[in-house]
Structure formats: structure tokens, C-alpha cells
Design a protein around this nucleic acid. Structure first.
Lengths: 142, 142
DNA sequence: TCTTTTACTTATCATTTGATAAGTAAATCA
DNA sequence: TGATTTACTTATCAAATGATAAGTAAAAGA
């Protein structure tokens, strides 16, 4: 069946994506940052401001553990907590200036590795890649 | 610059891939299997037979830790170790029958979730997805 | 043959992560 | 107003993971 073959292809594809992502983010994650902390920071970076609950949901982490890790990140000066003015139970998390710097550096490292990876791609290749990303983003990884 | 935009697109794409992968493999990872063990088993499944050194390289795990985790998986009866007949320092790891069963079940769970995800896709969509996977696999995630 | 290298193991310790119970304060509901 | 729910915190314990030192046995090299 065709869908079965597609599934097999998907498995090796996601394996490759994970491998390449790991290669790209290797060393980008500044030392003294654990994987969990990096993932939280990455999520906050692209979605800020976010609530602890959202982080908990998205990172599949219990609220107590999320709370603990956020406290550690605050102690490291990488994120800030802001109370909601309307609902005082709610908190918003965003990067501190120091956190912004750290993530900017990380993304710069990742980007330069990415550019090295596609340096031999032609203009047509890049357009194909662009279109392929759009297709998979909308039709498979929504 | 166009490559910059492509990089931004890649970042949100890989984020989506990770999120969806996590959704698909959720619950597929039988309980009593840790993330590290699951990753090792997945790697062994698609690449067996593999040596401990290869697992160590691929999973970015030190040899001592790899050795320990493999011992645990052997104790659980999920993998087997076979000595190389030519080079007696070398070992080969492959799934045991029990391990095969476990991974078959895991992949079946993942596949059914995948099928549910693409159930509304037309034949044309599936062909587009297929082509897009090929393009990205060869031109970006090699 | 002697030295070095390779492949892997054992042991140990610190840190991270996961899980659970219990608690606070604010908002919502009835 | 009193009960319930929501959002989050604190505390604690067990388990998983990471890092390092030291060691074994076989192969390869000089």
C-alpha cells in the first residue's frame, strides 16, 4: 500500500531531521545550559510571552517541574517573569536581555552551520527546498 | 536576504517536526522504557546490527554510558550482543525477539496515528508530500 | 616482541529529570 | 458568601543521565 511506503519514508525522514538538528545545534547550546533549559529557552524565544502552563503543555513537563526549571532560569538571569495585570494568578515568561543575547548567539551559530550545509545548493535547489518546506509544514507537520 | 528567510522557515519547520514526532511517538514508547532506551532501540531497529561504538557516536553518548545502557537493555531481554568472529574486540547489537515485538508494536502505534493525521489528504496531496520528503531528504537533511 | 591503539567494561559520583503530595492565592461559580 | 477551580509554588524522593578515572583484552604497528 502506498501510505505504508510513505510511513516508512517518514520514519527515515524524521530520523534525518533529528540527526541534522542535533548537528546544527551542537555547540550552539552554550555550556552550562542543560537540554531541558535549552528547549524551554527556544520555545520562549519563538513564542514569547508564554505562561508557565503553556510551557508545561508544550514541553510535556509537569507544572511542578516546569516551575522549578523556570526558577533556575530566572536565577541564571536568562528569563523574566511578569504578572498579568488582569488575572493575577497568571504569569508571563519572556527572555531577559541576557537571555536574548544567549539565544541570538545560539541562533547565529546554527544559522552559520545551516549556510555551510546549503552552500552548494543552486538557486533552483533553494526554491525547491522552500516549496517542499511549505508543503510539509501545511500538509503533514501542522 | 533569501537564505536568511529560508533559515527562519527551517527553524519553525524543525520545531513542528519535533512536536509532531513527539505526538506520534507519545504512548508508543511502552512504559518502563526511558527516552534514552527508546532512542537506542529505534536506532538498533533501523540499523541493526550495530556496534556499541556506532551507538555511542550516533546517540552522542560516551562509551561508558553506552555500555551501561546496553547492559540494562540486555538485562531487560530487549537486545542481544554477538561477538565478531574476526575481530574479537568487536560486538554487534541487535534486537531480541522480545525487542522486535516491542518495536513492532511501537511502530504500529505510530503508523496508525500517522494514518489518522493524513486521512483527509487527497491522492495529489500524498504525492506532493512524497516528493517534498524526497527533496528535503536529499537536499537538506542528508 | 614490545608498544600503542582500539573496543569495550566497571565503578563511582554529581547533576538532571520525573513523579507525587501538599499548599497558596486569585478567580469563578452556584 | 462559600465552594470549587485555576495557575502556580514548594518540598521531597527516586530514577535517569552525564562525566570521569581506571581497567581488560584483542589487534595493529614498529
Amino acid at each position: 500500500m502506498e501510505k505504508k511506503a510513505l510511513f516508512t519514508k517518514l520514519v527515515s525522514f524524521t530520523t534525518s531531521v533529528h540527526r541534522v538538528t542535533q548537528e546544527l545545534t551542537q555547540n550552539a547550546k552554550s555550556d552550562s545550559i542543560t537540554p531541558v533549559h535549552y528547549n524551554i529557552l527556544e520555545y520562549v524565544t519563538v513564542s514569547q510571552p508564554v505562561t508557565p502552563s503553556e510551557i508545561s503543555d508544550c514541553q510535556h513537563m509537569s507544572m511542578p517541574n516546569t516551575s522549578r526549571e523556570l526558577r533556575k532560569l530566572i536565577e541564571k538571569g536568562l528569563i523574566e517573569k511578569i504578572s498579568d495585570t488582569e488575572d493575577r494568578r497568571k504569569q508571563y515568561i519572556r527572555l531577559s536581555d541576557e537571555g536574548e543575547d544567549l539565544m541570538k548567539e545560539a541562533f547565529a551559530t546554527i544559522e552559520s552551520k545551516f549556510l555551510a550545509r546549503i552552500q552548494n545548493a543552486s538557486k533552483e535547489d533553494l526554491e525547491e527546498i522552500d516549496r517542499a518546506l511549505d508543503i510539509l509544514q501545511t500538509k503533514l507537520f501542522f
